[in-house]
């Protein structure tokens, strides 16, 4: 691993974030790790011990209505010129953020130490969303038909 590799770890729920920062530092002891945290986030001494730099985002939650704020977040992520961008959840928003960060490597690090590579392809997020929606609807209609068409038999109720 290059000693100069620049890594950004994007904030998530407190104890998850702490754990993943620790994992990143253990696996890449010489990397320059930046923790991207929401404004006003009280970083703990443990978290601080694993990172080289802390960058604060404008807010802690981003909604579709805050598209301007989201673009400012993207600009912040790109300004760091990171080699690797790490998120803790492979949600659509995190995929978009990681993909648009300009980092060569985008990954989702799970708490149990798994690393899921994230595609940087522009169409990967919409394709993924479409697939998820299709699978989800199939499951939903299966469950819906079951509860509306098949009743618990009286013998089972006794």
């Amino acid at each position: 691993m290059s000693a100069r590799e620049k890594i950004c770890v994007f904030y998530s729920i407190r104890h998850n974030f702490e754990r993943v920062l620790e994992n990143v530092r253990k696996r890449m002891p010489h990397a320059a790790i930046t923790a991207m945290v929401p404004k006003g986030y009280a970083i703990t001494a443990r978290e601080r011990s694993w990172v080289n730099d802390i960058v604060e985002t404008e807010r802690d939650k981003y909604t579709v209505k805050d598209i301007g704020a989201f673009f400012r977040l993207l600009r912040l992520a790109r300004a760091g010129r990171y080699d690797r961008f790490i998120v803790l959840f492979a949600s659509a928003r995190h995929r978009i953020l990681a993909g648009a960060s300009g980092a060569r490597v985008c990954e989702c690090w799970t708490l149990d130490g798994h690393i899921v590579p994230l595609s940087r392809h522009a169409l990967s997020v919409p394709i993924r969303l479409l697939c998820d929606a299709a699978v989800g609807r199939l499951w939903y209609w299966r469950a819906w038909l079951s509860v509306h068409r098949r009743r618990v038999r009286p013998r089972e109720r006794r």
Binding site: S91, A133, G136, W139, Y140
Partner: peptide, 21 residues
């Protein structure tokens, strides 16, 4: 009352399941 419960559950989880979140 299993029947209303089953229906209520599926209705309550609709968003989660259909968006596969």
């Amino acid at each position: 009352e299993p029947e209303p419960c089953r229906r209520q559950t599926v209705a309550g989880l609709k968003e989660h399941i259909t968006h596969w979140r």
